[in-house]
Simulated assay, not measured.
Amino acid sequence: MIRMKTALVTGASSGIGAATARQLAAAGYRVICAARRAERIATLADEIGGAAVVCDITSDADVARLAEAVGDRLDVLVNNAGGALGQEPVAEADLDKWAAMIATNTVGTARVTKALLPALIAAEGVVVFVTSMAADAGYEGGAGYCAAKAGERAVVESLRLELFDQPVRITEIAPGMVRTDEFALTRFDGDRERADKVYAGVAEPLLAEDVADAIVFMATRPKHVNIDRLAIRPRAQAAMHKVHRTAVS
């Protein structure tokens, strides 16, 4: 009997995570949707024929329950949970927000990966870390988020070296400007006007589905192929600091 492959997506309640869960399910995977918001992931799991596990990746107990739900084998882990909080300069930094970003993007991601590595190795699986172009360099107002994502990248790079002789692939996707329902809104504490300004005049930012499509491509390569890092951004974004915007009336 052919075993149905299993994928786990963290942060699956919205945005890139939800889009990735849907596309992995369409590609034939049984998808475990993990996030803090129970109702959202339950609805998504019902839609795609998967399973929902409520999990805060900053909690040892939650991640232990997640590993128990996964079992002995896991083919794909998409480390997507994380996010940005605030955009103040260092001189005005809310360090509690910095700590929260590092706790999720860096430490939380490492916690999940550590717990699930045995199942991934057993299945000769693949881990896709969703970092950000913010890991490439700092920008004004981005120090805390850049630090958190650079820390996550350090986990990726170290893990790949540590597991070079194991049958598991360690990959990273670094998105640029992606317009989702919640990312910028969460960053600016629900301030819709500030959130909308992030994308003002940009005709075609990336969508969650664009990033999900790339993640599924990375996860479904032959087992000897490792996409170390894939940078993805809209055509309008030449660099973090250079984005083509049309006049906004």
Rank of each mutant, 00 (worst) to 15 (best):
residue 177 M to T: 12
residue 142 G to Q: 12
residue 178 V to N: 03
residue 103 A to M: 07
residue 109 T to V: 04
residue 151 G to A: 05
residue 137 A to H: 12
residue 123 A to Q: 02
residue 140 E to W: 07
residue 143 A to F: 09
residue 119 A to T: 13
residue 158 S to W: 09
residue 112 V to T: 10
residue 132 S to H: 11
residue 152 E to W: 00
residue 144 G to C: 06
residue 142 G to L: 07
residue 172 E to N: 13
residue 131 T to Q: 08
residue 150 A to L: 02
residue 101 M to T: 14
residue 127 V to C: 08
residue 126 V to Q: 01
residue 155 V to S: 00
residue 139 Y to L: 12
residue 120 L to H: 09
residue 129 F to L: 03
residue 138 G to S: 15
residue 100 A to K: 09
residue 120 L to R: 01
residue 163 L to H: 08
residue 178 V to C: 12
residue 123 A to F: 14
residue 127 V to G: 10
residue 150 A to P: 00
residue 99 A to R: 12
residue 122 A to E: 06
residue 148 A to Y: 03
residue 141 G to I: 01
residue 171 T to P: 10
residue 107 V to D: 01
residue 140 E to S: 15
residue 123 A to I: 12
residue 120 L to N: 04
residue 118 P to V: 09
residue 138 G to Y: 13
residue 123 A to N: 10
residue 134 A to R: 01
residue 105 N to M: 06
residue 164 F to M: 14
residue 179 R to C: 10
residue 173 I to Q: 08
residue 108 G to K: 05
residue 182 E to I: 06
residue 103 A to C: 04
residue 143 A to D: 04
residue 112 V to D: 03
residue 119 A to I: 14
residue 169 R to W: 05
residue 173 I to F: 01
residue 115 A to Q: 06
residue 121 I to V: 15
residue 170 I to K: 06
residue 135 A to D: 05
residue 131 T to Y: 00
residue 155 V to L: 12
residue 161 L to G: 07
residue 120 L to S: 06
residue 106 T to Q: 09
residue 183 F to D: 01
residue 106 T to G: 06
residue 144 G to D: 10
residue 179 R to F: 09
residue 160 R to W: 06
residue 153 R to I: 02
residue 127 V to N: 13
residue 115 A to N: 04
residue 116 L to C: 13
residue 142 G to S: 13
residue 140 E to N: 09
residue 165 D to V: 06
residue 168 V to T: 04
residue 161 L to A: 10
residue 117 L to N: 01
residue 100 A to R: 13
residue 123 A to V: 08
residue 109 T to W: 01
residue 132 S to I: 05
residue 168 V to W: 02
residue 140 E to M: 09
residue 182 E to A: 11
residue 107 V to T: 10
residue 152 E to H: 00
residue 165 D to Q: 14
residue 136 D to G: 11
residue 143 A to M: 14
residue 184 A to E: 11
residue 146 C to D: 04
residue 178 V to T: 13
residue 136 D to N: 15
residue 153 R to Y: 03
residue 148 A to I: 03
residue 168 V to H: 10
residue 169 R to I: 08
residue 128 V to P: 06
residue 180 T to C: 09
residue 173 I to C: 07
residue 125 G to L: 12
residue 148 A to R: 03
residue 124 E to Q: 15
residue 142 G to I: 09
residue 108 G to E: 03
residue 128 V to W: 01
residue 179 R to S: 13
residue 143 A to W: 10
residue 157 E to V: 08
residue 150 A to F: 02
residue 119 A to V: 13
residue 104 T to C: 08
residue 105 N to D: 15
residue 162 E to G: 13
residue 117 L to I: 05
residue 170 I to E: 06
residue 178 V to L: 14
residue 118 P to H: 09
